[in-house]
């Protein structure tokens, strides 16, 4: 076991992990931040996307120890400080961007990363950016609409 320390959603946290502990397991099991979902665990679905130092990564495909000293943002960090929904989250709610909601944490994190890089994406750019996020309910049209709305609202 080794100790890992990182900043998650603005708070410094540390915990004991094995070499093989994935970041997704660390945030879910050690930090009880279960908003980050594990859909496939094979790097395909994107339900587990979080931001590490501002970049979208699949938390099931990075070890917790590799994130030592980094800044992580999970879906829980997307809400406003008063607990109300953040812009991207609100846009998903307003535009029916979710059905079962399983893929939503990853979709929101990818959408936020896209809007950071490109505040006014075209529909094609949104669809291309979401290539690694799979929605089992296949609600893609409304997901794209939500992201377009978030771009306008932001």
């Amino acid at each position: 076991m080794a100790t890992v320390t990182m900043t998650v959603n603005g708070k410094s946290v540390s915990g004991e992990v094995e070499g093989r502990t994935l970041l997704s397991d660390f945030v879910r099991n050690n930090l009880n931040l279960t908003g980050t979902h594990i859909g496939c665990d094979t790097s395909q679905c994107g339900a587990c996307v979080v931001h590490v130092d501002g970049k979208a990564v699949k938390s099931c495909t990075i070890f917790a120890l590799e994130v030592e000293g980094s800044t992580v943002k999970t879906i829980e960090g997307m809400a406003n400080p008063d607990g109300s929904l953040g812009v991207v989250q609100q846009a998903f709610q307003d535009n029916h961007g979710l059905q079962c909601g399983f893929c939503t944490p990853g979709m929101v994190m990818s959408a936020a990363a896209l809007l950071d890089e490109n505040p006014n994406p075209t529909e094609t750019e949104i669809r291309e950016y979401l290539e690694g996020n799979i929605c089992r309910c296949t609600g893609y049209h409304n997901i794209v609409k939500s992201i377009q709305a978030a771009a306008v609202a932001a």
Partner: peptide
């Protein structure tokens, strides 16, 4: 290559 998250790593 792959998708944005894959390209970031």
């Amino acid at each position: 290559i792959g998708d944005p998250a894959v390209r970031n790593r």
